[in-house]
């Protein structure tokens, strides 16, 4: 289990990296390495060139402006975990990131790497879907923005081109007092979730739900926003029984069938996880 031979590049700037991506045929971008390195060790991927972007300092930042938080692609998961801004204004991201691997992997793993690897169980991918995040991508002709709804194409495949590089991702903020809940079911702490759910809620002064985001991770080939559930919540007062009824809709989501769990089990978990996430979210409305 040793990496195959490859040429190694460590550009210092985004332009340099894009230059390399544009000229090299079979290159892989190395970010935090927590997914690419195992794949290299197992020779699941055989790139001719590896472009290590760890030296592009400009990609490492957390910025908050006008109700939006922006993470540079090379921001370590650890930095997100310990960010006071994230903890205060995006508490669901803080809650979710504690489930991302382990301390050793979060110290290295990056948000950009996670989004590009696009494992359907990945918590940060689920967060991006839940927030309608916007991914910034740089290419030979400048930068473009991809709303997260259009970012995943299919299983572990993104909408970015071979000569493009993800440089950052913006998460719009939910207003103070929003409810949030992230729950997941994994066999071991830190494992990829067999099913996870993220719920964000806003209510009016009567306690009626005015806005909802319900996302399933790990269930389908990409994270799924369950629009039918979200719509059914609007205008209603939440309760566990009501959520239970509404979340039955999650059973209809097309689910992965693999060695960890059969599809119908994932669909069942989807109903349970989404309800539990909503219950948690409802309980937190008005508290932050």
């Amino acid at each position: 289990m040793k990496p195959p031979p490859f040429r190694y590049h460590d550009p210092r700037t985004v332009d340099e990296a894009i230059g390399l991506l544009s000229t090299l045929d079979n290159a892989k971008v190395l970010a935090g390495g927590q997914s690419l390195m195992p794949m290299l060790n197992m020779r699941y991927v055989l790139p001719d060139d590896v472009i290590d972007i760890n030296k592009i300092a400009a990609l490492c930042y957390i910025r908050e402006t006008d109700g939006v938080i922006e993470f540079g692609a090379m921001t370590r998961q650890r930095d997100i975990e310990f960010s006071d801004v994230v903890k205060a204004r995006f508490p669901i991201i803080h809650e979710a990131i504690l489930n991302v691997g382990h301390r050793q992997t979060r110290n290295r793993g990056t948000i950009g790497g996670s989004l590009c690897h696009l494992d359907p169980s990945a918590e940060l991918v689920t967060m991006a879907a839940a927030h309608d995040a916007v991914v910034t991508v740089a290419g030979p002709n400048g930068t473009r923005e991809i709303p997260f709804a259009q970012f995943p194409v299919t299983f572990m495949t993104t909408a970015i081109e071979a000569n493009e590089l993800v440089t950052g991702v913006r998460f719009p903020r939910w207003p103070a007092g929003h409810g949030y809940g992230f729950v997941e079911f994994a066999r071991r702490h830190g494992d990829f979730a067999i099913a996870s759910a993220a719920a964000l809620l806003e209510t009016d002064s009567n306690g009626k739900i005015t806005r909802a985001s319900v996302t399933l991770g790990g269930v389908s080939v990409t994270p799924v926003r369950v629009r039918a559930v979200e719509q059914a919540l609007i205008g209603q007062k939440g309760s566990e029984d009501f959520f239970r009824e509404v979340c039955e809709e999650c059973r209809k989501v097309a689910a992965i069938d693999d060695v960890h769990a059969p599809a119908n089990y994932r669909q069942h978990l989807a109903t349970v996880m989404s309800r539990r996430a909503l219950v948690a979210a409802l309980g937190r409305v008005g508290k932050a």
């Binding site: 066999r187 071991r188 702490h189 830190g190 494992d191 990829f192 060695v259 960890h260």
Partner: peptide, 11 residues
């Protein structure tokens, strides 16, 4: 070892 699950400290 991601697919064959050995018990960890938390379980």
């Amino acid at each position: 070892l991601a697919d064959y699950i050995l018990i960890t400290s938390t379980e």
